[in-house]
C-alpha cells in the first residue's frame, strides 16, 4: 500500500514538473525545473528496477543537460542585449 502511494506520488511529481517546465514564463526557471524533472526520472528508473538507466540519467540529466541548457539560456540573455542595441525590430523581450 505504501509503495503504491509512493509510486503515485512520484508519477504525479513527474507530470507536474513536466507541465511546469513548459508553462513557466521565465526560460531560466523552465530549465531549472527541467533539471528537477531529470532527477525525478532517475528516481523513477530506480523504482522500475533499472539502476543502469538511473545512473546514466543522473549523470546526463542532472549534469550535462543542465550545463548545456543553462549555458544556452545565459547566451540568449547576453545576446539579447547585444541584439537590442543593434537591431531594434526584433529584439524586444525575446529572451524572456
Amino acid at each position: 500500500m505504501l509503495e503504491w502511494f509512493l509510486d503515485l506520488l512520484l508519477v504525479t511529481a513527474l507530470l507536474t514538473t513536466a507541465i511546469a517546465t513548459l508553462s513557466s514564463r521565465d526560460l531560466f526557471r523552465a530549465v531549472v525545473v527541467f533539471i528537477a524533472f531529470g532527477l525525478l526520472m532517475a528516481v523513477a528508473w530506480v523504482r522500475l528496477q533499472a539502476p543502469d538507466i538511473a545512473l546514466a540519467e543522473t549523470a546526463i540529466g542532472a549534469g550535462l543537460t543542465g550545463v548545456l541548457l543553462l549555458d544556452a539560456v545565459s547566451h540568449f540573455r547576453r545576446g539579447g542585449t547585444v541584439a537590442a542595441s543593434g537591431r531594434s525590430d526584433a529584439a524586444g523581450g525575446r529572451e524572456q
Binding site: 509510486d7 513536466a18 513548459l22 522500475l48
Partner: peptide
C-alpha cells in the same frame, strides 16, 4: 507499478507534444 509508469509515460508524451 510498472504499468503505472507506462501510463505516466503516455501522459508525458501528450504534454510534450502539446
Amino acid at each position: 507499478p510498472s504499468l503505472l509508469y507506462a501510463f505516466a509515460g503516455a501522459g508525458l508524451c501528450g504534454i510534450g507534444m502539446f
